[in-house]
Amino acid sequence: MQCDYFDGGRCRSCTLMGMPYAAQLASKQERCAAALAEVAPSITWLPAVAGPESAFRNKAKLVVAGRTGAVTLGILDDSGRGVDLTECGLYEPGLARTFPVLAGFIDSLRLEPYDVPARRGQLKYLILTHSPDDELMIRFVLRTGHEIPRIRKALPRLVAALPRIAVVSVNLQPEHKAILEGDTEILLTDRSTLPMCVNDVVLGLRPNSFFQTNTAVAAALYRQAREWVEERSPDSVWDLYCGVGGFALHAAASGREVVGIEVAPDAVESARASASELRRQHPDVGPIRFTTADATAEPDAGLSSADLVIVNPPRRGIGSDLAGRLEESKVQEVIYSSCNVDSLARDLALMPSFSVREARLFDMFPQTDHHEVMVRLERT
């Protein structure tokens, strides 16, 4: 992939830009294999899963900068000034088409972009998500709620310009800190959920829900997990750090109990709605239950009855407490999806009763050294 922003030194976020894509994949595979070699010496690596090397991102997190009436959407340079990246080639076409429309909308309302060096202004970020059905979720991240009435009043005009808008919200982030969003979310539309159709499962994303940035590769990740689950054919599956239920709902089947644990209440509510829809389409599926709890601290009782556990933790991994409980449990198989192979290796070392049978690299982020690797563990 060639990028004028990278070549011109305006953006260096894609650290592997210019490297042939086959070489990128080989480098990531080598990195992950080396990290797991000591804790999983007999591991079998399946072929890496890759999607398009450009136009793959379903989500954009755009810094709003520039000046009132002439905003930039992109990133900040080293001095805290805006660098416009509206022609970046990483985004899905349906998402990229919205950038000039949104910039024009912001300019027409004369919303003041937040000036980081001066600590002045209102609009900090636009966070956008694009669905496979070409629908759109838009989040305006503001310092205060002062501009909400103007955005709300002008919203019909924005919907007329972008008819596929499903959800619009305002997030309030009042602090001068390098954090993307705050705790307060204010919906401006009747709809609160963006449906994401992944394989044969529809996941509902609310404004602050997490979902993988690469829809095509995420679909492959869920298919692989489902395949591993079906090979084992467990009676009970627990999905820890389940988010909106992607792994759990792909594991659902007739006669099988599926339980999801997630700390975010909105995500649990979305997962429950998706489970209801799945049951409507497939009345024979077994019981599906989602619970709001800390996956690291809460699931002891459930682990004693689970045949198979799926974990998809943040970068820090599952940690010693949960790894220890899995080690001491009667769970026979674990599927571990990780975005940090180093924390994965540390966690695997804490579970010596399990051996890694298979692993697979899923390249969610071409042009960078980020990786997603999923491993299948069996108790020995």
Rank of each mutant, 00 (worst) to 15 (best):
A154S: 14
R272T: 13
G246C: 07
F362M: 10
R57C: 04
E112V: 13
V116M: 07
G302S: 06
L62M: 15
V83Q: 10
V168F: 10
E327Q: 15
M374R: 05
A34F: 03
R110I: 00
N312H: 07
Q173E: 14
V159F: 05
I335K: 00
V101H: 12
C32S: 13
N312F: 03
L25H: 04
G243H: 05
A345F: 09
I186F: 07
R139V: 14
A26Y: 10
H371P: 06
L249P: 09
L203P: 04
Q367F: 02
K61I: 15
G69H: 08
A264C: 02
S343P: 01
I288D: 01
S233C: 12
E269P: 08
R164A: 13
Q212N: 01
R226W: 02
K28G: 04
T189F: 13
K177E: 09
D4R: 14
R119S: 09
A275R: 01
C3W: 10
M364A: 00
V268P: 02
V311P: 05
L322K: 08
V334F: 08
G245K: 13
P149V: 06
F210P: 03
H370V: 00
L76S: 06
E372F: 02
T98C: 15
K59W: 08
R10Q: 11
R164V: 04
L62Y: 11
K59Y: 08
Q224S: 02
D342Q: 10
I165S: 10
I106D: 09
A60P: 14
L350E: 15
R279K: 12
